[in-house]
Nucleic acid binder design. Structure first.
Lengths: 155, 155
DNA sequence: GTTAATGCAAAATCTTTGCAGAGAT
DNA sequence: ATCTCTGCAAAGATTTTGCATTAAC
């Protein structure tokens, strides 16, 4: 575990438990940086004793509160999390076929804010931009739509 | 009910029932065009006999499938719906205090698509931009955060 | 030793589904 | 008459919570 994270935890009076370390390890994979609670549990279980669901949920919540993780709610309605510490602002390209999420660095928000009148009566705190479509690998393949569990377009 | 909607339903072989009409009526309020299943049920129940939850859910699903409604999943993880028929493309400004969602017409996507390399390997199908903050009425008031039910920042 | 975290089980929340009866065309 | 829709009840999925025990500091 990075010392910056460890420091962060200690500052907030949070203890460094094996479960917490295991959960944070799960987010170290740059190929899959967006994880659901179920995915965290699955990954962790490969290496350690299986954690309890409530431990995972409580930690995702706690780590989000202290700013180590960031919660991202995708269109399927399931909460996803990613490491937020020392991370630059970004958005996501989400593949409707394989469910993979890539980051996209570009953010149109600042420019938009200047040119848009409707935004002048509003105090923005956060924003999110998600682009749904098909990644290079999946092309236009509509099968195995991981994201369509709740977002059903057709039965 | 607008004839365009009625026509749409008939074309798809869907029947025009009182429940369906009541649900669609609920979306006629321009002050609150984004509704959850629970909100639809509540609004409808003021004017008609209470509908069953499954009727509401099934209709929101069906009406989304045929393109009369559009599903929007906000950060609290609850599905919201809005009328989509004859509606121009737009995004949302969502107030973290009162939960109100206003539409914003401006869309940065086309411009972004041209200038961004990462988007060239991706086939976009849909995108969403949501801006969370405080509306004019609520200012910086953090109380009664309707949206924070699941999105909890603090207990 | 004190305080926070875990595991378990139970519940809460939102949503979906099977089936018999009712309603629309 | 046909085919869809509704209401009910039951179940599914994800997430939250209370409480006793365990682990970190």
């Amino acid at each position: 575990m990075k010392e910056s994270i460890e420091k962060h935890l200690k500052e907030k009076g949070l203890k460094i438990t094996n479960q917490r370390k295991a959960i944070l390890e799960a987010f170290q994979n740059p190929e899959k940086h967006l994880l659901t609670a179920a995915e965290v549990l699955e990954i962790v279980s490969k290496y350690t004793d299986k954690l309890n669901f409530s431990t995972v949920y409580r930690n995702l919540e706690t780590l989000t509160e202290v700013g180590i993780l960031k919660r991202i709610n995708l269109d399927n309605g399931i909460n996803n999390y990613e490491l937020d510490i020392e991370n630059h602002h970004h958005h996501h390209l989400i593949c409707l076929s394989c469910g993979d999420a890539k980051t996209i660095d570009y953010c149109p928000f600042d420019e938009m804010r200047i040119s848009n009148k409707q935004l002048q009566d509003f105090t923005p705190v956060d924003h999110k931009l998600e682009i749904y479509g098909y990644c290079k690998k999946c092309g236009n393949n509509m099968s195995c739509d991981k994201l369509n569990k709740k977002q059903k377009v057709s039965k």
